[in-house]
Design a protein around this nucleic acid. Structure first.
Lengths: 211, 211
DNA sequence: GTCTAATCAGTCGTAAGAAA
DNA sequence: TTTCTTACGACTGATTAGAC
């Protein structure tokens, strides 16, 4: 039905189809509410004062939108059962209800994406700071460990120098062998994804940099 | 205030709406090529000569879109210089060119947002892993430090027990005082923004969970 | 059939700048 | 200054093509 307009003999079909555009019954033309029932002019109305207003884009009333929104809140999908019921409740063409839901879904998706982006952005910034702290903590701990190792070395030499009994060896230090630094080899690839261009411009304003 | 802009738009709106009345004849019927661009301050365009042909098409042709896209690629903003030139090149109303650019910018913004989201998401996941590694490294280092401290304690006692000379004090250990654990107090607020619900669903597919 | 994605266009609010 | 003009972004309704 909606695909029936690809030929040139469009007159009748289009008038029928466009009865959706000019319902005459539903959906007041929002900007001016005192619109005197636009008769179907459908030819270039030279008068300019109303020929245009008669063709204003049909906008749904607040009540209609409220009801649609409530239904959308309950369930984003729209089975034809609900569609027809809603259409008759609202005095709209079922096609309009379907279109409304489609658009609503698409735009909800974009809105949600924006929200998720900002949330993820703050999360990322937070975690970057935390990672920074952790890195400096690791450095400090390694330094301390190095100092401790030196101290142990010194004390061990003193112990060995004073008394050569080797009882109670440093059994708990078997893990303190070689490196002490560079554990996990993480110093190299830590900053690949820092995204420095997104440095702390809050909200979505940074986007306007590219427009 | 907002009532202004309607003088220049009414006739255009009228023409556009006529085109909506006859969408069947859309496929590229460029009305007039050599339109002399009587833009600027045109009120009540007496559309006698092009009143009928003004029923333009919906849907731009591929060539038109290509040219528009090229221009958009060069520069997203559209100054009226370029707009008028483009309009005459394409045989479109400057208004259409402006609308096309506006919509194109909006779409581009959404697309970019999606890209940035996925990029940021992977960056976030990477940094989460890195933070995890750092945390475990911190734990390991602290453990080692604890062991080292114990060892130092043991050695110190042995040294003190064997010989009471206090030369070469543990000067380099002045920083190894109290806590050894809980540095930076970071164990508490590390996971506030982990967003566990976005656990490794790649691309934008996770979004369909909500639709 | 409906759905999504892409597209076109109308409306509204607003802000910058020109004109009175 | 205030008012008028113009352009833009955000939102909205609608159409089309294509996947399923």
């Amino acid at each position: 039905m909606t695909t029936a307009m690809n030929d040139n003999k469009v007159d009748q079909d289009h008038l029928v189809l466009l009865s959706q555009l000019y319902p005459g019954v539903y959906t007041q033309m929002v900007p001016q509410q005192g619109e005197p029932k636009p008769r179907r002019r459908r030819k270039k109305n030279k008068g300019g004062e109303n020929g245009v207003t008669a063709a204003k884009k049909r906008k749904l009333s607040a009540d209609q939108v409220n009801l649609l929104e409530m239904n959308f809140g309950n369930e984003h999908k729209l089975e034809s059962e609900r569609k027809d019921r809603l259409a008759s409740e609202l005095g709209l063409d079922p096609r309009q209800v379907a279109v409304w839901f489609q658009n609503r879904r698409a735009r909800w998706k974009n809105k949600k994406l924006e929200e998720e982006y900002t949330k993820l952005k703050t999360a990322h910034e937070n975690i970057v700071v935390e990672k920074c702290h952790l890195e400096s903590e690791v450095l400090k701990l390694k330094e301390k460990l190095s100092e401790a190792e030196k101290e142990i070395q010194r004390l061990t030499e003193r112990v060995d120098g004073v008394s050569s009994n080797s009882c109670s060896p440093t059994l708990s230090m078997e893990a303190m062998d070689a490196p002490f630094l560079g554990e996990f080899g993480m110093e190299g690839y830590g900053d690949i994804f820092y995204m420095p261009e997104t440095n702390y411009i809050h909200g979505m304003e940074w986007f306007n940099q590219y427009m």
